[in-house]
Design a protein around this nucleic acid. Sequence first.
DNA 1: GTCTATAGGACGATAGAC
DNA 2: GTCTATCGTCCTATAGAC
Lengths: 195, 195
Amino acid sequence: MSDRRTEIVRAATRVIARRGVRGLRVGELAAEAGVSTSLIYYHFTDRAGILRETLEFIGERADRYTAEPARTGAADDPGGELERTLLLELQDTAEVRENSTAWGELRASAVFESSLREDLARATHTWVHEIAELLGRAHPAGTAPAHAASAERLTALLEGLSVRWLSGSLPLDHARTLLGEAIAAERASHRSSID
Amino acid sequence: MSDRRTEIVRAATRVIARRGVRGLRVGELAAEAGVSTSLIYYHFTDRAGILRETLEFIGERADRYTAEPARTGAADDPGGELERTLLLELQDTAEVRENSTAWGELRASAVFESSLREDLARATHTWVHEIAELLGRAHPAGTAPAHAASAERLTALLEGLSVRWLSGSLPLDHARTLLGEAIAAERASHRSSID
DNA sequence: GTCTATAGGACGATAGAC
DNA sequence: GTCTATCGTCCTATAGAC
């Protein structure tokens, strides 16, 4: 992928985070990327193509974003790493807000655009898998299916809390508390009596 | 509110469930309601007004929809009622799909339209309160704040699972299983040792 | 209150020069 | 590869008859 294409896709991510998928105008995207409208169409077939690649990019970036701390983090404390990784996504910084907002838009858009579903399901699966792995390392006593189920619940809960936060139904610190308690409960469920 | 207005708002709910908020066209809404485009504008100021009232209607209907079983249901089995009420929203029927889809669109739209946030937060609060009440009746040993926190987690998880289902990232029966397990775990957390 | 017809504008997309 | 200029269409919203 050429640098320009990447630039445009990154600009589109910012515009989507700011205005939503429904609010993305090719003209505004051009302005955000600092290029002309027609250059957008030189690099992409049409608006749907821009959206497709941008949402794919958001999905891929979410993969990396999630996977990285799991690899570089303290391998000797997977439990703490799990908690940090999940709570990382409930923070009021520009980057996290952009990621969460864009991811939420990707999710919401996929309800009506089946072409997005495959990428989205794959990114979701990767994320769940990462979390399940952390759980497995933190609590070897539990079974793999139980770790997977916990990871699915925790990530789905995180998505639910995140959109409640972003839509003004839940204060951020409260969302963090609720998620923290859920993590503790799921972890406890994997502790055998001999832990 | 006149009958016509109500008809149009109901039609708008169906169109939103089918096409999303971003996909709602006033012309299509008119066709769905069986009236002319201009009649829509006779009853509503503009497209944003249609959306505002429709999303408000969705929020109000969600209140009733949730609250009704809690009032009419078997008062002697609040625990079972809780489980039934929550699992009710993970069903592949036309009505539940429409409700869940429309509610998800309301939630997603509110991220970018602050005017929707107040209604949404109120409807969310009402829903959480209903669930907390059921928990309180099922497990009097628990404290009210603990019931509230459980209700917030369960409803946020349900929203997260629901949108994963609708966006094709999670099979429905799996979503139901995950929610059922979470309900059981939250209930267990409110059981004192003397239960 | 409800319709037909259409104005007006926003926005996606293209033509063509450089 | 990138721009300026513009076309065509879709869609919101209104005018005006009944």
